[in-house]
């Protein structure tokens, strides 16, 4: 650790103002940022704490969407989300301490290539609302995630809300990386009215969360695991590290996608 300014704003507006200082970063649950500070991998001069702002915490259903505020901790989503796939995803992140501190906004701003939330937001085709000095902006998920630890978030902006359309059926299945327990491959599938299907994959690709459009097309006409049989996932562009080589991740993407489809199709919501 090292010395830095810790700002605890009383409102969102104050938070946005406090963030305009050079070298300032928002602090969500600190589950990623605090370890980075400790190891001196990030060295902001100021952090602006968001977790205690009531305007940024909570979730509700409105206009056919689930709206989750930016500093809502995973545990709250696990307990309250009306969509079982989301509750299960949030309930499977880290351990209880991580879930009670870590936030959806922090996870989306960070865009770790193995994180769970990006798969859900991309898989549901959600919208990320941010606020900066110039006011609010809305960014569609397809534009938000720009690659490894990279998003459309601009300096001085805060993720204030995530809006996720409610699907007919959805599931998130992940295969855990043995050490971190993040996703070695995680697949979020969602089926919407009119047969539209979205499939988002996390953990596997070296360029972060992505949509598996070939799978989406096949599933649109036959929403069953068997529909994916003709597909073969290439190892090119997959992550390779001490836990797994690229070809294994490529193999897993299909296995896990089949499991997610089976689960969504069966309407099973069991946790695991």
């Amino acid at each position: 650790m090292y010395s830095l300014d810790f700002v605890r704003p009383a409102s969102l507006a104050e938070a946005v103002t406090a963030l305009q200082a050079e070298d300032a970063l928002p602090l969500g649950g600190g589950q990623t940022l605090i370890p980075a500070l400790r190891q001196r991998l990030a060295m902001p001069g100021r952090v602006v704490a968001l977790a205690a702002l009531p305007e940024l915490v909570g979730l509700r259903v409105e206009g056919g969407e689930i709206r989750i505020r930016g500093a809502t901790p995973h545990a709250r989503v696990a307990a309250e989300a009306p969509l079982p796939a989301l509750a299960r995803l949030a309930g499977g992140i880290g351990d209880p301490a991580v879930r009670h501190r870590g936030t959806i906004g922090g996870s989306l701003a960070n865009n770790d290539p193995a994180a769970c939330w990006p798969a859900a937001v991309l898989g549901l085709g959600g919208v990320v609302r941010v606020r900066g000095l110039a006011g609010p902006r809305e960014i569609a998920a397809d534009a938000w995630f720009r690659g490894l630890f990279d998003t459309d978030l601009r300096a001085g902006e805060i993720v204030t809300e995530v809006r996720l359309p409610l699907p007919l059926a959805a599931a998130y299945v992940r295969f855990r990386q043995p050490a971190s327990r993040f996703a070695l491959a995680g697949v979020f599938v969602a089926r919407f009215a009119g047969g539209r299907v979205r499939v988002a994959v996390t953990g596997a690709s070296a360029s972060g969360v992505y949509r598996w459009t070939e799978a989406e097309q096949l599933l649109a006409s036959d929403f069953s695991p068997g529909a994916l049989a003709p597909l073969c996932v290439s190892a090119e562009g997959m992550l390779a590290d001490v836990q797994a080589p690229a070809d294994y991740r490529a193999h897993l993407v299909k296995v896990i996608a089949c499991r997610a489809v089976a689960e969504a199709a069966s309407g099973r919501t069991a946790c695991g």
Partner: peptide, 11 residues
Amino acid sequence: LLTGTYMDYAM
């Protein structure tokens, strides 16, 4: 060391 944290060294 490629496994210098608990994110990579599996306890």
